[in-house]
Design a protein around this nucleic acid. Structure first.
Length: 475
RNA sequence: GUCCCCAUCGUCUAGAGGCCUAGGACACCUCCCUUUCACGGAGGCGACCGGGGUUCGAAUCCCCGUGGGGACGCCA
């Protein structure tokens, strides 16, 4: 049988890290088995679903490259189907009308909670042979409930958690259609998973408790029961549960925060799943290796440090053209123009340092795109020179030598090697340690005391700009 | 409260009864490299929640605790 998996988010917010991982695992499972990955938007909660959230989910998946083979399907557009199935169940006696009002239900729940009982429907309108149902009230539009079996157990072999058994006596008759006739979540999922031929349901483990109900409904419909794999949740960096109030951010936020999608993907893949000692791998390898057997059943804590490390790795590995595109945009949002775009070349940026060469010098030391852009900003705008560093490194002793250096580099062919030779010669002549000369240059040229080899920095900065910055600081 | 799930270094994890003196990765520490800061290289620190079983042998299987989490909506 062809594998068919699905990702079924409800559009009530952005695609967060947990949802992204669920999608990633479903996607990878389908890819691994040559199956289909289906996207289904569960938008039956009209109150909370928004088009913006739908778009946010689509954007998030697009950024990560989680492409779907079918969909997106929208449940709100499948009402006819649900109504039809509802009617069949009513006819078959596996569902029934319930005329309890919301208020009745509310007080019932309160009483039960007060008595320390598990809140559940009392079966007032559940038809049984020999039972007389109450008189149907005129002014209350009924909901439809599923007639859940009352004895026996529902069991399934969860692909992540192993065998799970839940007694039917623990479940009540859940509402599958609201008073206004619209179907509810558990029912729509069942109909859709059935009709879409889903073979493996991979979802968050907050759905474990829904599974036995769904299996019961599936059985009532005579459907094949899919396999289930319940993924445990992802905790925040602090070990706390992620929520709207606390720590949950959109995957797109990682893009904004300077992360490469390759790093996010690799990190997420490795969070709760493993392949021996493999830590760094691309999505192709992931899809080849992925299996449900190596998913941890326990919750995993998010670790930004490790994400940073992976990000550093992928920044080093990135295609330089792609990286330059990205960094150019980040620089631009700080009003810094680079010469990467043809349009920019028409301006007076012709002798501005080549971004790709600059990145070649800097990518090794970065673990974040925004930081990288910030670090190289001085190539494209005069830096703010750190006063303390200037005072520390531009000593009276070195000042005349800096003048001498400035003189000498006016004459040379502008290469890092030539610059380096001049520095070496000066240091030797005055019997100084190399940093004595390198540090003040670093401060004058970059504004701070840390940079790659300063001769290479000068080579990229250009002769004119290098001299200009030195002279400004010496005068 | 009831039901369900989970439990290996600080964190992510390897581990399918002997391969475990518990392995890898991030972080941390030390050293090396060095033109500062990074990168990189070499080392180091560091864990089987507790108690009972089963077994010749348990991180692995069972039971009981303990701790964490989830679910109990005309939300999904």
């Amino acid at each position: 049988m062809t594998v068919r998996t699905r990702f079924a988010p409800s559009p009530t917010g952005f695609l967060h890290i947990g949802g992204a991982r669920t999608a990633l695992f479903s996607w990878a499972y389908a890819k691994k088995h040559g199956g289909k990955f289906i996207l289904r938007i569960e938008d039956t909660d009209v109150e909370r679903s928004t088009p913006a959230a739908v778009q946010a989910i689509l954007d998030g998946m697009a950024w990560l490259g989680l492409d779907y083979d079918e969909g997106p399907f929208y449940q709100m557009q499948r009402m006819e189907t649900y109504k039809k199935v509802l009617q069949t169940m009513l006819d078959a006696g596996t569902a029934y009308y319930c005329y309890c009002s919301k208020e009745d239900l509310e007080t019932l729940r309160e009483q039960q909670t007060l008595q320390g009982l598990k809140p559940r429907y009392d079966g007032k309108w559940r038809p049984e042979s020999g039972k007389t149902l109450p008189l149907i009230p005129k002014d209350i539009p009924p909901v439809i409930r599923f007639k859940n079996p009352q004895t026996g157990v529902v069991a399934w072999d969860d692909l992540v958690k192993g065998r799970i058994e839940i007694a039917n006596s623990e479940m009540d008759d859940l509402i599958i259609a609201r008073a206004d006739g619209t179907p509810t979540y558990n029912f729509c999922v069942v109909v859709d998973d059935f009709e879409m031929g889903i073979t493996q349901v991979i979802r968050g483990d907050d759905h474990v408790n829904n599974t036995p109900r769904q299996i019961n409904m599936l059985m009532a419909l005579g459907a094949t029961i899919p396999q289930y794999a319940h993924l445990s949740m992802i905790l925040g960096d602090d070990g706390q549960k992620l929520s709207k109030r606390h720590g949950a951010v959109s995957v797109m936020q990682y893009h904004e925060d300077g992360y490469l999608k390759e790093a996010v993907l690799n990190y997420l893949a490795r969070l709760g799943w493993s392949h021996g000692d493999a830590e760094v791998f691309n999505m192709q390898q992931f899809c080849e290796w992925f299996d449900l057997d190596h998913i941890t059943p326990s919750a995993a804590q998010f670790n930004t440090e490790k994400l940073n490390w992976l990000n550093a790795h992928y920044i080093k590995e990135a295609n330089l053209d792609v990286l330059a595109e990205d960094i150019a945009i980040r620089l631009q949002s700080n009003s810094l123009q680079t010469n990467i775009h043809a349009a920019s070349r028409t301006s007076n940026l012709a002798d501005t340092p080549d971004l790709k060469l600059v990145l070649g010098l800097y990518r090794e030391r970065a673990n974040n795109l925004n930081q990288l852009a910030k670090d190289i900003a001085y190539f494209y705008a005069k830096p703010q020179v750190d006063a303390a560093e200037k005072q520390k490194h531009m000593t009276a002793e070195i000042l005349p030598i800096l003048h001498e250096f400035a003189q000498q580099i006016k004459e040379i062919e502008w290469t890092a090697e030539n610059i380096h030779n001049i520095m070496n010669a000066l240091v030797a002549k005055h019997q100084l340690k190399f940093p004595k000369l390198a540090m003040p240059l670093r401060v004058m040229l970059t504004g701070i005391a840390q940079s790659p080899s300063i001769d290479q920095v000068m080579a990229l900065l250009g002769q004119k700009e290098t001299l200009a910055r030195i002279e400004t600081n010496l005068s």
